[in-house]
């Protein structure tokens, strides 16, 4: 699969990573190279194979999802939650204005 510049722009937008116009071509070439290499997987017959899912590393046979009880054990730590924020205001995180 060879990725064109429009595809790079689309996935860069989805991933919220600015890719300057000047770098589009080189990025497309590099990613296409990786994808072409990855596509050797098409040779593997996976008929009737169930995909692994989530953290189920070996078919999910030896672990089950743990459940927590419905008890409030966390929170009430506004200062620590905001401590690393690039910008905070009156107990809120502040971001460039979102227009709805």
């Amino acid at each position: 699969m060879s990725l064109d510049e429009a595809t790079i722009r689309r996935i860069a937008t989805l991933a919220r990573i600015e890719v300057p116009q000047a770098e589009l071509e080189a990025t497309a070439a590099k990613l296409s190279g990786i994808l072409n290499w990855i596509e050797q997987l098409n040779e593997v017959n996976t008929d009737n194979v169930a995909p692994m899912s989530g953290g189920t590393v070996s078919g999910g046979t030896d672990l089950t999802l743990p459940w927590r009880t419905d008890v409030v054990t966390d929170g009430d730590q506004q200062e620590m939650v905001l401590a690393n924020a690039p910008e905070a205001h009156a107990g809120f995180f502040a971001v460039p204005k979102v227009v709805e």
């Binding site: 927590r68 419905d70 054990t73 506004q78 107990g91 809120f92």
Partner: peptide, 21 residues
């Protein structure tokens, strides 16, 4: 009482970012 994946309170109307794990 608590959130779906954390132990913070799911109550309505508390001060901003006070029910945040």
């Amino acid at each position: 009482k608590a959130k779906l994946f954390s132990g913070a309170s799911a109550d309505f109307g508390a001060g901003p970012n006070t029910q945040v794990s």
